[in-house]
Design a protein around this nucleic acid. Structure first.
Lengths: 212, 212
DNA sequence: ACCTGAACACCGTTCAAGT
DNA sequence: ACCTGAACACCGTTCAAGT
């Protein structure tokens, strides 16, 4: 089968999803694709560029469009949820997406949509830009949490009964100890919606705007 | 000089800051420390564990305490800013801190402090946990943006005049095009404070609480 | 307990050679 | 234009040997 940039990028994304980023090597990828290692370099200039390609490919698979008849609050919410889809659809690729600077247009698309929504709701340019940045920061941070790299109490242990506790010194961590039950609950949907709601309402409070 | 876990971790952090994560190898580190490669393994079980150590070391260098006489809003702000200090003090290590699950107590300390502040302000346990998670998500996302991995318009190019524009198709990106000026401004302080303020005010609105 | 060199099984990428 | 193998300069880590 023909070797293609797209085929290579796609194979890389699948390999990451299957075995993690550390499993990705040009040699391994070539073997998976049934070609010589150096053949890859006819379509991709370097491994770094390949990973950029994976990030872009995943971003471009998200649909950021939203119902233009909905309230701007609901549109922003829909866009945020679309973004978060990345963590659900490509959990192990999320870190790749989020850890490399987006050089492509695909990375700017969610921002374009969000800006359009906010401007359409009557927000000024600077305000819209600032609000979008706050949303993006929150969403990106949420992705990282969901993917499991943000400080948490529940330690993933293969052998231990699900949701075992990190050993905590109650003297040093009185709050974490007394709130252990709440901290162990990991409902990413609810967590995400909670924070998203905070931001949406705070942005709505910035100024009295009427539906356009 | 004696080889020590702390000395190794510290050297790794400095090397990351100087030349980036990709420059870190056990061999390079050993050379920097004037020892044989394998000597490192007497103090650190693996490279991955070493990077965990770097993350922990950086987290433990942040002072999350806040003036207990200040309003809870100001305390939360102070804690958030302390967290953000990481991006200023160790920009190139930030990704390391933020990309690996915190297994140590040092990673839980900021959460402990934030929980104490919110509970002291009268928030319920579950509410406090949710709010803290929203804050952490926002802060972590902000760190990533500040360190330069979040979609942005300003493309860092060594040769181009500072702040050159990504080539944008005005038809596809009307908002980004018309807001190019605003999007190019990169005032991380202002951006961070703007979003932090949104969250603080939204959390304050969750329920009428009086100072404790 | 700590250090070490040799060795193993890998890397990404350059280059020169092929079609 | 695309493919390729050999070669180069690296990796992390195991192991057996030293002190």
């Amino acid at each position: 089968m023909q070797l293609t940039r797209e085929r290579i990028v796609c194979a890389a994304a699948e390999l990451i999803e299957r075995e993690g980023v550390d499993a990705v090597s040009m040699r391994r990828l070539a073997a998976d694709l049934g070609s010589g290692v150096m053949s890859l370099y006819n379509h991709v200039p370097s491994k770094a560029a390949l990973l950029d390609g994976v990030a872009e490919w995943i971003m471009s698979g998200i649909d950021f469009s939203s119902d233009p008849d909905a309230s701007w609050e609901d549109q922003v919410r829909a866009q945020a949820r679309a973004f978060r889809q990345i963590a659900r659809a490509h959990p192990r690729c999320t870190m790749v997406v989020v850890s490399r600077p987006t050089t492509s247009a695909a990375g700017l698309l969610p921002i374009e949509h969000a800006l359009a929504t906010l401007r359409g709701a009557g927000f000024g340019g600077e305000e819209a830009v600032r609000a979008v940045r706050a949303f993006v920061a929150y969403i990106v941070g949420s992705l990282l949490r969901e993917v499991g790299v943000t400080p948490s109490l529940a330690r993933p242990e293969d052998d231990a009964p699900a949701g075992r506790l990190l050993r905590l010194d109650p003297a040093e961590f009185p709050q974490a100890t007394s709130l252990a039950a709440e901290l162990m609950v990991r409902d990413h949907d609810a967590d995400f919606e909670f924070g998203l709601d905070l931001l949406v309402r705070a942005v709505a409070d910035l100024r009295p705007v009427r539906r356009r």
